[in-house]
Design a binder for these strands. Sequence first.
RNA 1: GGAGAGAUGGCUGAGUGGCCGAUAGCGCCGGCUUGCUAAGCCGGUGUACUCCUCACGGGGUACCGAGGGUUCGAAUCCCUCUCUCUCCGCCA
Length: 421
Amino acid sequence: MLDIKFIRANPEVVKAGARKKRIECDVDRILALDKEWREMSTDVDTLRAEQKNASKLIGSAPPADRPRLAEEQKKKKGLLAEREQALDLRAKELHELMLRVPNVPAEEVPEGKDDSENVEIKKWGTPRTFDFEPRDHIALGEMRDWIDVTRGARIAGSRNYFLKGDLSLLEGAVMRYALERMVAKGFVPLSVPTLVRSEVMVGTGYFPGGEEQAYRTDSRDDLCLVGTAEVPVTALHQDEILAVADLPKKYVALSSCYRREAGTYGKDTRGLYRVHQFQKVEQVIVDVASIERSIEHHRSIVANAEEILQALELPYRVVNVCGGDLGQPQIQKFDIETWMPSRKNYGETHSASRFHEFQARRLNLRYRDEQGTVHVCHTLNNTVAASVRMLIAIIENHQRQDGTVYLPAPLRPYMGGRDTI
RNA sequence: GGAGAGAUGGCUGAGUGGCCGAUAGCGCCGGCUUGCUAAGCCGGUGUACUCCUCACGGGGUACCGAGGGUUCGAAUCCCUCUCUCUCCGCCA
């Protein structure tokens, strides 16, 4: 959520930002409502003050006079109640609209309508030229008895799967390696709830708007399955005022992630590229409201992910996500796409976002600076490693003609010392 | 799932209808005293919105887990919900 004061002061900036993101947003309606609300609010506050004073006087009046005075007060209640109700209606409408105002994208965000216009800013490694016909992960999975999508679909519907044998172990190895690497960098590991209240989904910017993408329990509990550990981790300090000395907070969490993938029928149907459930190690940073520091963190969380891809000898590229492909909450986003031979292309494996205050304001996540002044925090996050897509990249890129797979050195300690599966 | 107790400021904790945005202690900040430290003394110390002011600062309103209700007036009474604790049951 943006600061209403910022919108008041920079309506054109907000409008231009929404245009760049291709998101509808009636800024003028918000400003009109805000103006109306403030006028009504002043009016209501004055009426309340009068009521309050009158009530206090009754308390100190001689008991004999009280019934008469109370009777007079009672007559005035209607007007206040009426105005309070009208004020409340404005406040609610304003809040709903505010929740939908997109964050203003950074200047460095390229113009563009969708992911086809994302701008490549870095490329590492060279896609391997095979001297045999490489198998895709499905074929490899069948050959080695590593993947069972048929039975996955039978017990849980399409886009569900079992990993078996060494591939199941490899999933654990990649997750563990990613987690430990981040812990070594000083990130605090967290195990998190993956079933959360919808207010947390609102707080992190997924709702309203992303309801279709989230699994939700029935009304007995009304909880949402998170699509990423970003949600519970970013919300960890919801409603808190942190001490500036404790910032930045750097967290890393391994969790299962659940995505409905509504509206993707027919897209990436084959294999494990797009699935309903996977494991992911996610990094989250909460820090002071400094654009410079956010940019610095943004670079570092991208670098953290790159290091892992390099250590796993996987070719990748980094793209600067364009306006039209940016979500409502982000200021800027860098996606990392890893080479996947079966796609004959790079496939998205990481997504690094900076939000400035957007999430923190919704989460009421603040800090107190050295002067004692309270500010809203900045938040950022990035994938460290997402299980199935990383597995696709590893087994497809490192396969041999006989169907065995070469394991890069960092994974070996987690695979019983083996260099091949 | 059953029975009971509770939720107050950074923390502990008082407050059962008006004198309560809230006693007190701790903590924290500023000052004084003091070889240093510690102790002591004095003062200050919530958040949000809004209005006035160039600003310093000041006024108003709201907030005592959340939402409703009763009342001229609610931290205090009533209802619903959420959470915490204790005991019992069940259980990974």
